[in-house]
Amino acid sequence: MLQLLASAVGTVVSVLIGVAAVGIVVAVVVLHVVRKKQGKGGCDCGCDGCPGCHACHSHTDPKQKKS
């Protein structure tokens, strides 16, 4: 009985691991696509410390600003 229960737990955990793995891959890809569409940089660097963080978050060609 205990062996059966252990086997069932193992199967459930295995299925959950599989689902989680697929979920992680899909989430990371979707997150990057969404961030890209929002105009946010996809570099994942620490933006607080980045000297050019503003460029990633609302990128505009500085040359176009000349007026």
Binding site: A6, S7, V9, G10, T11, V13, S14, I17, G18, A21
Partner: peptide, 12 residues
């Protein structure tokens, strides 16, 4: 210990 499937063990 939890007797997870071989593929799940490999993946993790």
């Amino acid at each position: 210990a939890i007797d997870a499937a071989a593929w799940a063990q490999g993946l993790v």
